[in-house]
Every structure is written in C-alpha cells, then in structure tokens.
Computed example of a mutant assay.
Amino acid sequence: MGQPVNVGVVGCGAISAQYFRTIDRLPQLRLVAVADLDLDRAREAVRSYAGVDVLSVAELMADARIDVVLNLTIPAAHAEIALQAIAAGKDVYCEKPLAATAADAGRMLRAADAAQVRVGCAPDTVLGTGTQTARKAIDDGLIGRPVAATATMMTPGHERWHPNPDFYYAPGGGPLLDMGPYYVTSLVTLLGPVATVIGAASRTRAKRTIGSGPRRGEDIPVTVDTHVTGVLVHASGVLSTLVMSFDAAATKAPRIEVHGEEGSLVVPDPNHFDGDVLLSGVGDEGWRALPAAAGYVGAGRGVGLADFASTPAGEEPRAGGTLAFHVLDVMESLLASAHSGTAVHITSTCERPRPVALLDQVVPR
C-alpha cells in the first residue's frame, strides 16, 4: 500500500476529534503534528494519540515530515493558513467553506497552481453511501431526466449548543456559508454545476444568546443573513430550490429531494455519510428504499482527505479545490442576488466529481 501520507493539523476545535478518529483508522494517513493558537487545547486534543507533536503554526509549516496540512481553523482564517501551507510547498485540505470569500479562495487556488501543490476541501459527506447511491440512481435513469430539486435546512441556530458560536454569525458564517456547502456540494454532485442564481435573504435578530458552556447567557452580534432562500439554475437546466435558515424551529421537509420525469428521490441528510435513499416512480403508491449501491461504507469526516491524498497527480480530487471554489462562488452569488434583487450569473464552473464505487474503506490507487 506504500507509505502513509503524513498529516499536520492546524486548528484543534470541536470538529478536529472527528478527523482524528478517521485518520487513526485509515492506514494511508498518519497524524504527525497539530497546532493551535491555544497550545493547551492542542495537547488535550491529541492526548490519546501517541507520538503526535504539538507545534506552533510556524513550526508545523516548516516541518519537512508533513505532506499535507489539514486546515481546521475558523472560516476567516482558512485563506491565511492555506496560503502559509502552500508557500511551504505542502498540499492543503480545508474544512468547509474553502475560504470566507471567493476572492480569498481564488488567491489560494492561484497560489497552489503556481507552487504546483494541490488544494482539497470538505464536505466529504457526499462521498458516503447516501449521496453516492442517489447519484447512481440518477445516472442509471431511475427517475428519468432530472427536472428539479429542493434542499432544505431549518434550525433555530447553533448558539443553543455551541460554546463559542461567534463565527457562525460573522462573515464566512450564517446558515448558507456554514451548512450550505453540504447541500450545494450535494446538488452539484447529483446534478452538475450551477449557471445562474436568484436569491432572497433576511436577518431576524441583531444578536444571539449563547446557550451552553462557560459563556452561557452572553450575547453575540449577528452580522450576516440568517435566512437565505433562492433558486439555483444548473447548467443542465435543472432548477434547485434552496432554503437555509437559523431562524426556524424545525421542519419535516426532506433534506434533499430530486424530481425527474419518471420518478422522485429522497436523498439523505448531506451532513451525514449514509442514510436511506427513497424512490417513488410515476404511478407508485409509496416510496421504497434503495440498497446502498455506491460510496464509502462506514465513512467519517476525513475520508475525503484520504481520497484526496490517494488521487493520482494530474487528476482532480473528488473533494477538490475546483469544486469547493464553485460551491463558494454559488453561495456568495446567491447572497449578492439577494441583496441586489437581480439574478447573478456564475462565472466559475466545475466537473461533476467522479462517482465512488461501493467500497468499505478508502484505499490508495
């Protein structure tokens, strides 16, 4: 299987534990070092992982052992850390979104191209059996020609449970930039790139109150839209209706539905790797669950990093920077449309990521 890819992680916040567990169980990845502004937090994060060094960011970037930097910082710091990794000659894989703005993301990709290193980005949930089985059903013609889709995420907001939710309500956050990457990446994976968007947005409160942790009861400012809706016009002609909200109590709407001329699919939550794909054809009286037919089985956050690391040189990774930039461009353009009241043409594009065959692990080619 060759030598494992050595990973250095910058940012040891809440999401890092999920990545560490996945890296620990995949033989093609090796966690060698972590860095965080809070070194005590970094030490605690890797306390149960023997042999992992705790370094400063500068030390980690200079460490010749590290092949790829896993960037788990807050969105506002994604570009800064990624550019440092690129300047050090290392591949970089970011937590979503790729950057706080498309302009920053573009700088990252241009720098990576000039340095001949690669950029990858979450979400990798679309590589699991849920979205991949739905994609195979579409590609196999089970719903006929796709016509429309809906994607819905309605919650009261993350301040109820997250002890430090400030970044969710700052530039680079909000329901669209936080959760939208899962949904838009899934829609692009299922239906291809987006050509035009039409949006609307609102902001119901100027502040939010933290509901847990040592800062419980503290108010934080809201500087982003907290309810965003719109239509994505895919290059294929499919129309996807998107609703992302931190202003609702709950919803019974499926996370994603895809409708074709001959049938409809319910697609599992794109924030998870698996789940039942439901199919109802024209004339059917109900829904039937499809067996898992594609995707990584039992995957966890970090499987996209392994897929990225094992992608041959010259081939775009499934969780690659081009896809992540297009998704960010779509979301940023949707907000621009909401504020201008006019449709916005998407200047970027990407290929649909290669499908994932039904596998039980990520293996290098």
Rank of each mutant, 00 (worst) to 15 (best):
M1E: 14
V10P: 00
G11E: 12
G11W: 02
C12H: 01
C12L: 06
S16P: 02
F20R: 14
I23H: 03
I23G: 01
L29S: 07
L31R: 15
V32Q: 07
D40Q: 11
D40A: 13
A42E: 14
A42R: 04
E44C: 10
G51M: 07
S56G: 15
A64K: 15
V68C: 15
L70I: 14
A77G: 00
H78Q: 13
E80V: 00
A87Q: 15
A88Q: 09
G89F: 12
C94K: 01
A105R: 08
M108C: 10
A114N: 12
G120L: 13
P123Y: 08
G130W: 11
T133I: 08
A134C: 04
K136V: 12
K136C: 03
D140P: 05
G141D: 04
G141F: 08
I143Y: 01
G144E: 04
T150Y: 05
T155S: 15
G157Y: 00
H162I: 14
F167R: 09
Y169W: 04
A170Q: 15
G174Q: 04
P175A: 14
M179D: 11
P181N: 08
P193D: 09
V197C: 10
I198D: 11
I198W: 05
S202C: 13
R205M: 07
G211V: 03
R215D: 08
E218P: 03
I220Y: 04
P221C: 06
T223A: 14
V224G: 09
T226Y: 00
V231F: 08
L232Q: 03
H234N: 10
S236N: 05
L239W: 02
S240T: 09
L242I: 09
T251I: 02
T251V: 03
R255Y: 13
E257N: 10
V266R: 13
V267K: 07
D274R: 08
S280Y: 03
V282H: 05
G283H: 12
D284H: 07
E285W: 08
W287S: 01
Y296P: 01
V297R: 13
V297C: 02
R301N: 10
R301G: 00
G302S: 09
V303M: 02
L305M: 10
A306E: 12
A306T: 10
F308L: 04
P317H: 09
G321L: 11
A324D: 02
F325E: 03
F325C: 00
D329R: 15
V330E: 00
M331Q: 04
L335D: 01
A336E: 12
S337E: 03
A343N: 03
I346Q: 00
I346G: 00
P353R: 13
V356K: 01
L359A: 15
P364A: 02
R365S: 11
